[in-house]
Structure formats: C-alpha cells, structure tokens
Simulated assay, not measured.
Amino acid sequence: MTTTLPSAPQLPSLSTDAAPGLLSPEFWQETFALNRRLFIQLQRRPSTLIAGVIQPLMWLVLFGALFQNAPQGLFGNQVSYGQFLGAGVIVFTAFSGALNAGLPVMFDREFGFLNRLLVAPLASRFSIVLASALYIMALTMVQTVAIIGTSALLGSSLPNLAGLLVVALIVMVLVLGVTALSLGLAFSLPGHIELIAVIFVTNLPLLFASTALAPLSFMPPWLQWVASLNPLSYAIEPVRYLYLHSDWSWGSIVLEAPFGGVSLGAALGVLVAFSGLSLGLIQPALRRSLL
C-alpha cells in the first residue's frame, strides 16, 4: 500500500509583495515623516538655526566694515567691499551647512536610531537620505533669505526676480552636491569625530581658495588656478554677477579664469556636473549601508 505524502504549502510569491518604489506615495510619506522629525528636533533646540543665521550676518557686517577703506577699483567700478562680499557669504554659508548635513545621520548611527530605521518596513531606505537633504535645503534657504535681506538693508542692490530665482537655483544645486558628499562620509567614516575632522580640514581651505573674499586678480597665479578649479567659485561668481548686473544673460562672462572666460550657463553646468558626480560617488557607500 502506497502512502501519499501531503504536498508542501506554497509560499507567497515575492513579486506580489515587493516593496513600493521610489515614486510611490508610501516613499514620499515616510520621507516627509523623517523630515518632520528633523524639524521637531530643530524646534526643541533652535540654537542651531539661530547661530546659522547670526554667523553669516556677522561675517557680512564685520568683514564689510573691516575692508570698507580698500582701494577704489579693486572690486570693480562703484562696488564696495560689502557688495562684493555678499555673494561669497551666501555661497559659503550654504556650503558650510551642507557640509554638516552628515552629522545628524552620524549621531543616529551612534545612538542606534538608524538601526531601528533599517529594520523598519520602509518603502525605500533612501528616504532617510532624501529627508536629510530636504532638511538642509530648507535651512539653507532661510539663511540665504536672511543674508539677502541684510545685504539690502546695508545698501546692496538686489537682483531682479529672475536673478533671485537663478541665485536660489545655484545655491540649491551646490547644496545638493555637498550634502551628498557629507551623507556619503556619514555612512563611510567610523564616527562623528572623524567626520568633524574632515569638516574642519575642508571648510576654511576651500573658503580661502575661492573668490569669496577676494577677486582672482588679487591672487598669485598659482592660487588663481586653484580658485578656478574650486566648485565654490562657480557658485560665487554667478551670484555676484547677478547682484551687480541687471542686464545678464546665460552667455554673460562671470569668471575670468586663467584658462579663459566662463559664462553664467557654463558655471551652472559645472555645478550640475559636480552634484551629479557627488551623487554617483556616494552610491556604493549608500548601498553598503542601506541595502
């Protein structure tokens, strides 16, 4: 007599239970939920935002006063140092904030909160990265508006509406690229001490090796080449040109580099390429940590 064994139960197909994609409502819902968590933290400890707004305003007022007696014509015809400095303060403030974007993620790693997120049924773990990027962009826009408003009160002329929109676009593209690098470091470095060390080593050298504080013509030849290869200069010079010229176009020459003139459109293209390269470089680190 033969015995018939019961058939094994059929397991559900994985394809029908696949997690929602990056364009799903669930992904954006969890992204904004994680973003809201960061703003709740900011609401409980607003000193970060207050210091982030006050510091660039102090730079603008004190540096502008320190060099107000600089020789006429050094920064262009009828251009004060305060007007020259405004663009550098806007861009460097955005750069500094974006460079610190990885610190909250690093602290979440060290305190164990990130591990809880990684085992949660998220639509995509990349929502953790996107939430941090949106948070930094929002803070950067608050700082940028404060700097532009203070510059106007100090006598600097404002760009027209189209110019202001281009300024916002330039700042956002730069912030996206630097935030990506900072988040990549947050997932790659062993702890926050190493990340803070990288921030300290990177911050001021990139500031002084750019056109934030002085024009290219004021620099020695070797530093002119360094500044012309610095991504910050490709954000500072277009913003400065938009501030000082109302009749701008995408073909306007905004940077007289040692290798030739750089137009407004070309400078924006360099920033887009820098952000794309940054996003590409962090992909292996994000996949190792999130997938």
Score class of each variant (00 low, 15 high):
228 S>A: 15
167 V>T: 08
21 G>T: 10
238 P>Q: 06
60 L>I: 08
150 T>A: 15
99 L>I: 10
282 I>K: 02
64 G>H: 08
9 P>N: 12
263 S>F: 06
271 L>V: 04
143 Q>L: 06
228 S>D: 09
163 G>K: 07
54 I>R: 04
277 L>N: 02
74 L>P: 11
206 L>D: 06
129 V>N: 00
33 A>V: 14
286 L>G: 03
28 W>N: 05
59 W>P: 07
231 P>Q: 09
183 L>N: 12
24 S>Q: 07
113 F>K: 01
176 L>G: 01
138 A>P: 04
201 V>K: 02
5 L>N: 11
140 T>D: 15
31 T>K: 03
143 Q>V: 06
94 A>T: 14
217 S>P: 09
223 L>E: 11
194 E>K: 08
205 P>G: 09
57 L>A: 05
206 L>R: 02
101 A>D: 02
112 G>N: 07
98 A>G: 08
90 I>W: 01
85 L>V: 08
250 W>I: 00
30 E>N: 14
209 A>W: 05
218 F>V: 15
210 S>G: 11
106 M>S: 13
38 L>A: 12
291 L>F: 07
238 P>F: 03
178 V>I: 15
257 A>H: 07
169 L>P: 04
144 T>Y: 02
93 T>R: 03
273 A>W: 03
147 I>F: 07
198 V>M: 15
89 V>W: 04
193 I>C: 00
162 A>S: 13
56 P>F: 05
139 L>T: 12
130 L>N: 07
17 D>V: 14
285 A>W: 12
30 E>K: 09
69 N>K: 10
162 A>T: 11
180 A>Y: 04
286 L>W: 00
74 L>K: 12
112 G>I: 10
173 V>S: 03
61 V>L: 13
288 R>T: 11
181 L>G: 05
40 I>T: 14
222 W>G: 01
193 I>W: 04
263 S>E: 06
77 N>E: 15
209 A>L: 14
2 T>H: 13
202 T>N: 10
256 E>T: 12
210 S>D: 00
290 L>D: 02
15 S>V: 12
